[in-house]
Design a protein around this nucleic acid. Structure first.
Lengths: 199, 199
DNA sequence: GTCTATACATGGATAGAC
DNA sequence: GTCTATCCATGTATAGAC
């Protein structure tokens, strides 16, 4: 193991917060998961909110850089769409709670929450936007607003994880079938999008 | 007003549960919103869980029939995609909390929750699937699994509401701009999808 | 640092008067 | 039906021994 108490707490908190959300998570759950008691949680992190902030910062801080790296790279627009879908879906398959966690907390937390956590760490779409405009001017793709394209890409990649229970209920697919579908979507989604925008 | 106490409670509960979710909602919040006290909530509905179930049943029971009506209608596949996006996005603009509410609770509630509430009320995709296969056979659209097509449609319609806070943070758009974008997406989404699948 | 015990507040639920 | 008062369990947080 060789894991410090602080690390154990952070790992346990990440698991519990991601499964149950800030409102549904109990400090007792986290203590149990970490194999310690509640008092020790407050010793390391003063309050539930502080602990939650730590987890949210860590989680969002891991995801965004990887996506930025792709979005800002020098590859062609189509390759970029392809790489983004691959990377995004792969991350979510590894951690299926992530999309709901991010979506739920960004919607529920109050006021300046996003500013506090992501203030400097927003996705940098400038380069992507530039490429889109270039390709439009060159006549290789139909006119489209870069932000709309980005929204569509992320919608197709992320939503299936959010709608998974409903989808499974509707179609009777089990977890293996779902994962197989998402594996296929790593290439189906970019193909679909490129078909939609190319001239 | 002319609203019975039970109706006031249901309206208040719907508002509070949709904003805060089952875990985050407080009976006190609902009582305040309804202008009554907690005891009366328990008089009408025995427990928080029963009240929640009532709301979830009502909400999901209103949405699905409207969507089924479109999905099972006799119009052409392309018209159907068009009508579905129009109707779905319109519903969500009216009630922006709905997507998160459904997604959150279907993910968080335990075990047979979906069976209990939607057991008989699932979306009926048979007709849509038939049409897709016909068009594929006819050579008018590229081969695509009907369920995948449906998943893509609903992803593009629903996700923007879920990712709204992140999107606004990233792009600096305000609520009016967001609503204008969704208004435009009522036609942009079906156009995009049809472009992607048509031969 | 880690534990047990406990304080203090909140939330769901009930009792009983009106 | 509707209210006030209250019970009881749970949840966050702290005190203090080791």
């Amino acid at each position: 193991m060789q894991q410090s108490t602080e690390e154990k707490i952070l790992a346990a908190a990440a698991k519990v917060f991601m499964e149950k959300g800030m409102a549904g998570a109990r400090m007792q759950d986290i203590a149990d998961e970490a194999g310690i008691n509640k008092a020790l949680l407050h010793y390391y992190f003063r309050s539930k909110e502080k602990l939650f902030d730590e987890i949210f910062k860590e989680v969002s801080g891991q995801l965004l850089p990887r996506l930025n790296q792709i979005i800002e790279s020098d590859i062609s627009l189509f390759d970029k769409i392809w790489a983004f879908c691959q990377e995004y879906i792969s991350r979510m398959v590894e951690n299926p709670y992530l999309p709901l966690f991010i979506v739920e907390e960004t919607n529920k937390q109050q006021g300046a929450f996003l500013e506090r956590h992501l203030g400097n760490k927003r996705l940098r779409l400038d380069k992507l936007a530039q490429q889109v405009q270039q390709e439009v001017a060159r006549g290789t793709i139909k006119p489209i607003h870069p932000l709309e394209l980005f929204l569509t890409i992320i919608s197709m990649c992320a939503f299936p994880f959010l709608g998974k229970p409903l989808l499974q209920h509707m179609s009777g697919m089990n977890d293996d079938m779902f994962n197989a579908m998402m594996e296929a979507r790593k290439s189906e989604v970019p193909k679909f999008i490129i078909n939609a925008i190319k001239k």
